[in-house]
Design a protein around this nucleic acid. Sequence first.
DNA 1: TCTGGGGTCCTAGGACCC
DNA 2: TCTGGGGTCCTAGGACCC
Length: 415
Amino acid sequence: MFALVDGNNFYASCERVFDPSIRHKPVVVLSNNDGCAIARSAEAKALGIRMGHPIHLVEPAMRRQLVVRSANFTLYGDMSARVVSILRDASPRVEVYSIDESFLDMSGIRDREGFCRDLRERIHRWTGIPNCIGIAPTKTLAKLANKLAKSGQGVVTLASRQQQEIALQNFPVGDVWGVGKRWSEKLASLGIFSAAQLRDAPTDLILQRFGIVMTRTQRELQGQTCMDLEEVEPDRQQILVSRSFAERVEDHDAVAQAVATFAVRACEKLRRRGLVASAVGVFAHTDAFRPELKQHSPTRMISLPAATSDSRVVLGTVRRLMTGLLRPDYGYKKAGVTLTDLARPSELQGDLFSPAAVGDDRLMATLDQINRKFGRGVAGLGASGWKPKPAWGMRQQMLSPCYTTSVRDLPRATC
DNA sequence: TCTGGGGTCCTAGGACCC
DNA sequence: TCTGGGGTCCTAGGACCC
């Protein structure tokens, strides 16, 4: 039996924890560059603000009613860690599925509903994050139960066949975990509209039309566990750092500096996970939302002679990849760096004549330590350019303080 | 003026091997 | 004239997730 704990409107709720003045207002959190809505409070949803909707397309009159915030992932990540620590305290087996969702193993717990009600209350009281919990024999059903819990009850159990029957009859198939927009359209064309209909559809038809993944979903809806709790996060296969720029950038040096910055950041992520990369890629895009402008989306990838997590090695590679990549007189709107062929250094295949991995681990560890202690970007490499306001910077005009991770941003109480 | 970022898995098709 | 069977690896594209 699984429980899925999910923070309600997570990013919007994080914004509210330290700013009571926006508690009952329609709050919208925007994506990087203040582009699209990526979280909405209940009030904002009620006003019709859709997920992923570009904020500049919202009517000005409506826009004025909203409390709009730039995404503050430092804050959300820290709040998430607080919630997870409560979960780990409550249950020995936890899978952190995303920044705002975790699965818990419910086996051995007699009064599951009571347990989850307590847990829900504790999370809210200790962190300020409202949340809901769904309980069911499979992850897919637990996700479904969680969605039902959002409409008021807070905790929903779908343990018995009877409970599942009523719930699945009325549950739109497009809201089932693993069924996206495309699949739900295709399912509709086959006369499948509800979760119950998908559960009861002929398996060979589902396999033939949708593949193995959907049949797994179907089995999970039938109550058969296909997905276990993954307590240990599997190693990444790829690390990608990319950003859209606030403005189109024609200066190739500025793009190169942006890409260098992303490469350094990607290497930090790589080292943090204890991995090394054997391939490096770069890409850039012009502004796809301006079809009248000249478009160019170059991409390049190269295998390294030896695996590394050394920023200097990756930067040198990135510099070579960037040479001649961009076209003169084109304005670029986005760029990124990918690290692939990731591995643990101990698992690398050696070579008689050259080392399996290269780089100075101690130097990099020192660099990481300095930046952890004194703040990101305190020490680094010159290729990033080091400008306080680079041409490729992000737009973040409504950023909230990092209340929980920066001493300067500690909330103040006045009396 | 303004449109995110970071992942996963599966499948089909082509190149290549013996 | 005739032209197999079995496999791997890679890539691109498509679907999904938060």
